[in-house]
Simulated scan of single mutants.
Amino acid sequence: VLAGLLEERYPGRRFVGLNRGVPGLTTTAMLRTLPDKLQVVRPGLVTIMAGANDYNDQLNGLRPARESLVPAFVSDLRVYKMTRLIFELARSDVKRENGEILFYRHGASKNILYEEPKDEEKITRVTKDLRTNLVEMIRLCRQNGVSVVFVGYIQAIEENAVLSAVAAEEGIPYISTFIHLHERPPGLFGEDGWHPSPAGHRHIAGKIADALGDFWP
Rank of each mutant, 00 (worst) to 15 (best):
R96I: 11
I112A: 00
R9T: 09
Y55C: 07
A65G: 15
V148D: 09
F150L: 00
R42T: 02
R63C: 03
N160M: 06
T33N: 11
G61R: 01
M30N: 03
I175C: 01
D54P: 14
D54K: 10
W216N: 07
K110C: 14
T27V: 11
L140M: 09
G193V: 08
G51I: 11
L5N: 01
A90I: 00
P117Y: 13
Y174I: 10
R42K: 03
Y55M: 11
T26P: 08
G206T: 12
Y80T: 00
N160S: 02
L181M: 04
V16P: 08
N133Q: 06
A50T: 10
A205K: 11
L181S: 11
L134A: 02
R84P: 00
L181R: 02
E136Q: 13
R20P: 00
G44M: 03
Y174H: 10
E116S: 10
H203S: 01
Y10G: 12
G152P: 01
N133H: 05
L5G: 11
Q58W: 12
L2S: 02
I101A: 07
L85K: 07
L45E: 07
D93W: 01
V151N: 00
L77C: 07
E7S: 10
G61D: 08
I208D: 01
N56W: 11
E170R: 14
I208W: 09
F150D: 01
F150N: 00
A211V: 08
L2Y: 06
I204E: 03
T83Q: 04
P198W: 05
E191L: 15
A165G: 15
R202E: 15
V151P: 06
E7H: 01
F73Y: 00
H201M: 08
K37T: 09
N53V: 14
L38G: 05
S197F: 05
H182K: 09
D36T: 14
K128G: 05
P173W: 08
I48R: 05
R125F: 10
A168Y: 05
G200Y: 08
E88S: 12
V148I: 14
D76K: 07
Y114A: 13
L69W: 09
H201K: 10
I86H: 07
L45M: 15
P173M: 11
E158C: 07
E170V: 06
R96P: 03
A50P: 04
W216E: 06
A72I: 08
M137P: 00
P35Q: 09
I138W: 04
S68L: 09
V40F: 10
L85P: 11
K37F: 09
I204F: 04
F178A: 03
S164E: 04
R9K: 15
V41P: 01
Q58P: 05
D210Q: 11
V40M: 13
E88R: 06
P35D: 01
A211S: 15
R91E: 13
N111H: 12
P196V: 12
R125P: 00
E67C: 12
Y104G: 03
I172H: 05
G61H: 02
G61N: 02
W216L: 14
V16E: 11
P186C: 14
G4H: 07
A165V: 12
V166G: 06
G12I: 15
A211T: 10
D214K: 08
